[in-house]
Design a protein around this nucleic acid. Structure first.
Length: 511
RNA sequence: GGGCCGUUAGCUCAGUCGGUAGAGCAUCUGCCUUUUAAGCAGAGGGUCGCUGGUUCGAGUCCAGCACGGCUCACCA
């Protein structure tokens, strides 16, 4: 056996297993303990106790370390969470069993049966009486010290990332916990979880560009949803007073460390409430989630410590004035109502805008330029321009402003909520305004949704609704700099063709 | 889409002034029955992302392309 190519070696060893009568891919394995079970149960047991109890275990996992010593050897079996050491000795396994041990590679999945003891160095170990081949590792795992650090491989081959990088695994376990906590929180408050269409003839509920697709049998173009909103409010009309959906939405826009074309949104709607109720609810919910997931209300995010005990509240205009840079002369509240002044202020920040943009859109742009990056600690920004909020209810006595808030944490927009506009006549007029913007070239302006107007016409109770970006919330609570670190399989371009992915079909390629 | 950076052995990385490819881990051979980054001795392993160009000579310089990262624009 002179071929030292690790890939060829592994294929050869697989053939060798078959030749010796082992099933290369057995169907199941009955075990008494996972490696984690063993560690949990016996980590505290002393050598003497183990000897007295004579504990017989049958476990399985992936080989993460292999230390042969002539006619004996050690290996670490890993179940994804914990490792347990197995000691293989020729005089315990017999010649056939020990031959199997010598055929094993790092990364193979095996079973082991034996009794627990402690080595001289006091490590909890299974003294194996039997080994079982369960699956072959044909592609070697990344190196044991440095692990896998190539970002591209981590995203494309997340399975490898999960095997070797505990931090990656921890993020997704926490993500699951976040979702679980949110569901529990809403379920406990009388919400029901629903599922609404992903394929929609009109992609509404947000200002964004959709993906287009096609249904063959109906010969009909459809869009992938850009929000959950409009169908959930139809359900409020239908007499389901508290509904939520936690699911994927799709926006055909750029990719960045904060944007993936498909992402997970929670939206929930609560009848007979307004946006102030949701500010309180949001604070209660996220405080609970943060504590459950991180174990603390002080959460480290990059160079910051986020304090979930202190939530700031500013109107959009207050935030602009409050966070105004000291070296630029501060505008008056009056200036923020003037189209010309707003344009001038934005130019001062080198923010571009369209001539057609009204005061509301410019005000929102100014807020994003001045205040958004500084909103590190949890902060509610409320009272948004009507112009950028076609589905929100206006404030009493102020048709230019709506009852809407967004939650910012770590400089990112995490949540968006408002008192829902439930007047069908006004909603229709708002859609008409959006169509105007659309005709002026705004591809993200909202489309007319006739059925939604019809639904509102049956009467929707006063309602407050909110969307929370689950990916970004997960970033905050797992200290992740990029959204790709919290999405298992982020969108990447197809990888160029490579060899070595597919195992050869016949000969093991040792020529 | 723009700008900047990266791509060398299965993995993590060096590679000087342009002179013909290196280390550790992994793999293979031999020794080794309580090791744990096991050890000792030896060996094999490269389309230097791809395509061109400059040059006597390119991993190295230049151009284009591919993929990725950061960033700006757009957005949540």
């Amino acid at each position: 056996m002179e071929n030292t190519n690790p890939l060829a070696q592994r294929r050869f060893k697989l053939e060798e297993l078959k030749r010796r009568g082992y099933d290369p891919y057995p169907h199941k394995f009955d075990y008494t303990h996972t490696p984690s079970d063993i560690r949990r149960t016996y980590d505290a047991a002393t050598a003497e106790e183990l000897k007295e109890q004579n504990v017989l275990v049958r476990t399985c996992g992936r080989i993460m370390a292999l230390r042969p010593h002539g006619k004996a050897g050690f290996m670490d079996l890993f179940d994804g969470e914990q490792r347990v050491q197995v000691y293989a000795r020729q005089d315990k396994l017999g010649d056939q069993g020990f031959d199997l041990f010598q055929l094993l590679d790092l990364g193979d999945i095996v079973g082991a049966e034996g009794t627990l003891f402690r080595t001289r160095t006091n490590e909890l170990t299974i003294l194996a009486t039997q080994l079982f081949h369960l699956s072959k590792n044909l592609l070697p795992l990344p190196e044991k010290w440095h692990g896998l650090s190539d970002v591209e491989t981590r995203f494309r081959q997340r399975y490898v990332d999960l095997i070797v990088n505990k931090e990656a695994r921890d993020v997704f376990v926490k993500r699951s916990r976040i979702v679980q906590e949110i569901r529990g929180f809403l379920d406990a408050r009388g919400y029901i979880e629903v599922e609404t269409p992903v394929l929609q003839a009109v992609a509404g509920g947000a200002l964004a560009r959709p993906f287009r697709t096609h249904h063959n049998a109906l010969d009909m173009d459809l869009y992938l949803r850009i929000a959950l909103e409009l169908y959930l409010k139809r359900l409020i009309v239908g007499g389901l007073p508290r509904v939520y959906e936690l699911s994927r939405i799709f926006r055909n826009e750029g990719i960045s460390s904060q944007h993936n074309p498909e992402f997970t949104m929670l939206e929930f709607y609560q009848a007979y409430s307004d946006y102030r109720d949701l500010m309180d609810l949001t604070r209660t919910m996220l405080t609970k989630v943060a504590e459950a997931v991180t174990g603390s209300l002080e959460v480290t995010y990059q160079e910051h410590v986020l304090d979930f005990r202190q939530w700031q509240r500013y109107t959009m205009k207050e935030a602009i004035l409050h966070f105004w840079p000291e070296n630029i002369s501060r505008p008056s509240e009056e200036d923020l109502r003037s189209l010309e002044k707003l344009r001038a202020l934005l130019q001062g920040f080198k923010v571009s805008f369209a001539q057609a943009d009204g005061r509301g859109k410019l005000l929102a742009a100014l807020f994003e330029a001045v205040a958004e990056p500084k909103l590190i600690q949890p902060a509610f920004i409320y009272d948004y321009p009507t112009e950028v909020s076609p589905l929100s209810k206006t404030k009493p006595g102020d048709p230019d402003t709506v009852e809407r808030f967004e939650l910012y944490i770590a400089g990112m927009e995490i949540a968006n909520a408002y008192s829902e506009l439930n007047d069908p006549v006004e909603q229709c007029a708002r859609f008409e305004e959006q169509l105007g913007a659309r005709n002026r070239g705004d591809e993200e302006a909202h489309e007319m949704d006739e059925d939604y107007i019809r639904a509102l016409s049956y009467g929707m109770p006063p309602t407050a609704g909110e969307g929370i970006g689950i990916d970004r919330l997960t970033m905050v609570l797992t200290n992740s700099r990029s959204i790709r670190d919290v999405i298992l399989f982020p969108l990447l371009r197809p990888e160029p063709e490579t060899s070595d992915i597919r195992p050869p079909t016949s000969d093991s390629g040792l020529a």
